[in-house]
Design a protein around this nucleic acid. Structure first.
Length: 286
DNA sequence: TCCTAGCCTTTACC
DNA sequence: AGGTAAAGGCTAG
């Protein structure tokens, strides 16, 4: 596929929004829903195998007007630096179910640990598919995880997250919840529905909204984004609020909402894109 | 209504 | 080797 738009495959898959892609040589191998396929990029050429054009177009968010988005969120020198550093990074359209479970599991875990956990879950409970002589595993269904034993889930390294995963899977099965359908709700209402799942607070909900439900105004605030705010945007907050944010590591709900409200006012309706560039930039500045 | 403290497991990295 | 930080959430008070 000849790209008529700006895109960077590596940045998009390495910025911490997805956990199950694997690079072998210059090919990225992915499992999305029932599909197992591979993708590689050479400048303006995006090459892929075992998947259709329109799926790739939608999955990698190639329909997003990145020029417009970039202009919109380039509000200051720091944001411009991050935008330039990872130009072409796009928000991927994940499968909501896998995204929900992924970020429920992500609490208090580093990215390497999250990847390992999700891989173990998939190998244990997901269907095996063979592609190019290699084994890949679909992400397990809600039915499968709802029936999984607590010890089985804990063996995958989930720890206290096991009961959240099981309860969420059960709720989806029992109530026949259509996560994809949340795309049709406005941001605040879709968020309210997500918060009803156990193991889902404001941060996890925002990740699911941004990375799978196309709510580009969602602005997930984790420890890294909090550092970005304290180090580069503190002048936009009252001194008392900044002092309180510095005093303890985890955010209160009130502080979280204040940061989100600021981000949507300051960066506009594509605040989520700003978050992803800033997050990735902060993390790679070690 | 909002905030706080204590607790929840495991992994990776230093 | 031991300590700490890691894309946090739940509950009681």
């Amino acid at each position: 596929m000849r790209l008529g738009v700006e895109f960077d495959l590596d940045s998009s898959l390495c910025c911490g929004q997805v956990f199950r892609w694997k690079k072998i040589g210059d090919w990225w191998y992915g499992v999305v829903g029932e599909r197992v396929f591979k993708v590689r990029q050479k400048d303006l050429e995006l090459e892929f195998m075992n998947v259709e054009d329109d799926f790739v177009w939608h999955y990698f968010g190639l329909g997003d007007d990145l020029n417009k988005i970039t202009q919109c969120i380039a509000k200051d020198d720091y944001a411009k630096l991050a935008l330039r550093r990872f130009s072409g990074l796009r928000i991927v359209r994940q499968v909501p179910w896998e995204c929900l479970i992924s970020f429920i599991c992500a609490t208090n875990k580093s990215i390497a640990a999250i990847e390992q956990m999700l891989q173990r879950l998939s190998m244990k409970y997901g269907e095996k598919r063979t592609f190019e002589g290699m084994d890949f595993y679909l992400f397990p269904s809600a039915e499968k995880l709802a029936l999984a034993s607590m010890n089985g889930l804990r063996d995958c390294g989930l720890g206290y997250r096991a009961k959240f995963v099981q309860a969420t899977a059960k709720k989806i099965c029992d109530e026949g919840i259509d996560l994809e359908g949340l795309r049709n709700l406005p941001y605040v209402e879709a968020r309210k529905k997500l918060l009803e799942f156990s193991g889902v607070g404001l941060k996890v909900a925002d990740c699911v909204l941004l990375f799978s439900l196309e709510k580009l105004e969602a602005f997930p605030v984790d420890v890294w984004v909090k550092r970005v705010i304290l180090n580069h945007y503190s002048k936009h907050f009252p001194v008392a609020v900044v002092k309180k944010m510095q005093s303890h590591e985890s955010l209160t709900c009130g502080e979280y909402e204040k940061i989100g409200a600021f981000a949507r006012t300051y960066f506009g309706k594509y605040a989520g894109y700003a978050q992803e560039y800033l997050y990735h930039f902060e993390r790679t500045q070690q």
